[in-house]
Design a protein around this nucleic acid. Structure first.
Length: 449
DNA sequence: CGCCTTTGACCAGCGC
DNA sequence: GCGCTGGTCAAAGGCG
C-alpha cells in the first residue's frame, strides 16, 4: 500500500463529498431561484396593496422572512461548498506532491502500520496477485460478478470498502504476469505457499491485525442472518463445547478476507456466538451494513482504543439493534445505548471484543462499559469531536444552522477525521449515502427552514 | 452441471 | 520433541 494510493483514496472520498454537495447546492439554488420569483410577485402585489390591508402585509412579511432564510441557507451552503472545494484541492495538491516525491513520503511507517484500512489494501494486493490471475478464476469471478450485480443494482449496495477501487491502478498489479508463470507449480504447493506467505505478511505487518469481533445473540437458526454471503469451509469440535464450531468465509468476492466462526454457547444452546475476523473489501448489500459497520467499528476500537471508535461502535450497535428502521426514517432520534446490549473484552492471543446482544441490562455510559478494556488498550488521541462519525455527519448535514458546531469547524473536523482515522472513510461513505439518499433527494424541506 | 456442505487430513502455534 | 488444539484445505458427495 503506497502513500499515493492512500492519498488517491482520500481524494476520491473528497470527490464524492464534493459531488454530493454540488447536488445539494444545486437544489438549494433552484429553490432560491423559485423564492426570488416569489419575491418578485410579492413586490408586484405590494404595489397594489392598499393601506390598512393587514392580511396582505402579513403575507408579504412572511414571504420576506422566508426569502431571507433561503438566502442565509444558500450562503451557508456556499461556504460549506467552498470549504470542501478547498479541502479537495488541498488533498489533490498533496497527492500530486506525493506522486512526484514517490511512495511513503507523507506517511511514516508507524502510521501505516497502525492503519487497518491500509493493511487491508495490502492484503487485497497480495491476494489479487495470487488468486485472481488464472483464467478459470477470472471466469468464476465474472460469474460471481454477475450475481453480485443483481444484488447491488438499483443502488441497494453501499461501498463500505474503498480498497477495491484502486486495485487495478496499483502498480503492484503488474506483478500479476510474474505470478502467472508460477502456475506450473503443483497446485497444492502453490496454495500452501501462498497461504503461508500471506500469513507471514500479516503477522509481520501488525500482530493486532487479527482482531476479532464476537457477537452473542439468541438465534434459532444454525447461523445468524447478517446479510452477507458465506460459504462453510470447515467444522471442528472445539474444546469445552459439545457443539461443533463452523468456519465460514465471505463469498461476496473471492478475495474478501473476512471469516466468521459460528458456535452455540455451551451454557445456553439458544445463544449463537458468531466471531468475525477481517474487513470486507467490497460493497455490501444494505442488509449487511449494520453488522459490518458494528464489527468494523468494534475491531477498529479494539485495535486503536480510540474514543471515536467507541462512539462509532455505539452508533453501529444502535443500528444493529434497530435493524433497517433508520433507512426509512433517518431523522428519528436514536438511542445512544440500546437496551439489551452489553460489552466485554476477552484477552486471548488474538484480541477479541464481544458484543453481547442477549443480556438485559442497560449500560450507563460507554466509558464505563469499556473501562477495563481501555486500561488494556489505551485510548489514542483523536482530533475530531467525540460524536461518532455517522451521527456527527448526520447532525452536520441535517441540522447545520442549529448545531452548536459551526460548519467550517465541522468540515475541518471531518476532513481531519477522514485523513487521520482509517475507519472514517467507510463510515463517511455510508453516512452520506444514507443521509443524502433519504433526506435530500426529493425532500428539500430542510433547506427552507 | 454447478454450487454447497461434509469430513478427514494437514499444518502451525503453543505449552509441557 | 511430543501432544494438543485451532484453523484451513480439498476431495467426495448431496442437492436443486
Amino acid at each position: 500500500m503506497s502513500c499515493s494510493v492512500f492519498i488517491r483514496r482520500s481524494v476520491d472520498v473528497a470527490k464524492s463529498i464534493l459531488e454530493d454537495l454540488r447536488s445539494i447546492m444545486d437544489e438549494g439554488l433552484e429553490r432560491y431561484g423559485l423564492d426570488r420569483e416569489k419575491k418578485r410577485i410579492a413586490v408586484d402585489r405590494a404595489d397594489d396593496i392598499e393601506e390598512g390591508d393587514e392580511a396582505e402585509v402579513d403575507l408579504l412579511e412572511s414571504t420576506r422572512i422566508q426569502i431571507n432564510r433561503a438566502k442565509e441557507e444558500n450562503q451557508r451552503l456556499r461556504t460549506y461548498l467552498n470549504q470542501i472545494t478547498g479541502d479537495y484541492l488541498s488533498l489533490q495538491i498533496r497527492y500530486l506532491e506525493a506522486s512526484k516525491r514517490g511512495p511513503n513520503r507523507l506517511l511514516t511507517q508507524d502510521k501505516i502500520n497502525n492503519c487497518p484500512e491500509l493493511e487491508e489494501a495490502d492484503d487485497l494486493v497480495s491476494l489479487s496477485l495470487g488468486m485472481a490471475c488464472s483464467s478459470t478464476d477470472r471466469k468464476k469471478e465474472d460469474k460471481r460478478g454477475q450475481r453480485l450485480e443483481k444484488m447491488f443494482c438499483h443502488g441497494e449496495g453501499l461501498a463500505l470498502g474503498l480498497a477495491c477501487k484502486f486495485e487495478t491502478s496499483n502498480p503492484s498489479a503488474d506483478n500479476c504476469s510474474e505470478e502467472e508463470k508460477k502456475e506450473t507449480w503443483p497446485l497444492g504447493q502453490v496454495s500452501k505457499t501462498m497461504r503461508r506467505d500471506k500469513d507471514n505478511v500479516v503477522s509481520q505487518q501488525n500482530p493486532l491485525k487479527r482482531a476479532r469481533v464476537s457477537v452473542r445473540a439468541r438465534c434459532d437458526t444454525p447461523t445468524m442472518n447478517d446479510g452477507c454471503h458465506w460459504r462453510k469451509y470447515g467444522q471442528k469440535m472445539a474444546k469445552g463445547n459439545p457443539c461443533p464450531r463452523a468456519y465460514y468465509r465471505c463469498t461476496i468476492t473471492q478475495s474478501c478476507p473476512v471469516r466468521k466462526q459460528v458456535q452455540r454457547c455451551a451454557d445456553d444452546m439458544s445463544i449463537l456466538i458468531t466471531t468475525y475476523e477481517g474487513t470486507h473489501n467490497h460493497p455490501l448489500p444494505m442488509s449487511a451494513t449494520a453488522m459490518a459497520s458494528t464489527t468494523s467499528a468494534a475491531a477498529h476500537m479494539l485495535l486503536t482504543g480510540s474514543s471515536s471508535s467507541l462512539s462509532r461502535l455505539d452508533e453501529a450497535m444502535a443500528d444493529l439493534q434497530s435493524g433497517n428502521e433508520r433507512t426509512s426514517d433517518s431523522i428519528r432520534p436514536r438511542l445512544l445505548h440500546p437496551p439489551n446490549t452489553s460489552f466485554s473484552c476477552t484477552s486471548t492471543s488474538c484480541p477479541t471484543i464481544t458484543l453481547d446482544l442477549t443480556s438485559s441490562h442497560q449500560p450507563s455510559s460507554s466509558s464505563s462499559i469499556f473501562s477495563g478494556f481501555s486500561s488494556q488498550y489505551p485510548s489514542t488521541t483523536t482530533r475530531y469531536p467525540t460524536a461518532s462519525h455517522h451521527s456527527y455527519l448526520q447532525k452536520t448535514l441535517q441540522d447545520p444552522p442549529q448545531s452548536g458546531l459551526g460548519l467550517p469547524d465541522s468540515i475541518s473536523a471531518a476532513t481531519e477525521a477522514s485523513t487521520t482515522d482509517p475507519g472514517f472513510q467507510p463510515t463517511l461513505a455510508a453516512a452520506l449515502k444514507s443521509i443524502i439518499g433519504s433526506n435530500y433527494c426529493g425532500d428539500t424541506k430542510h433547506f427552507t427552514g
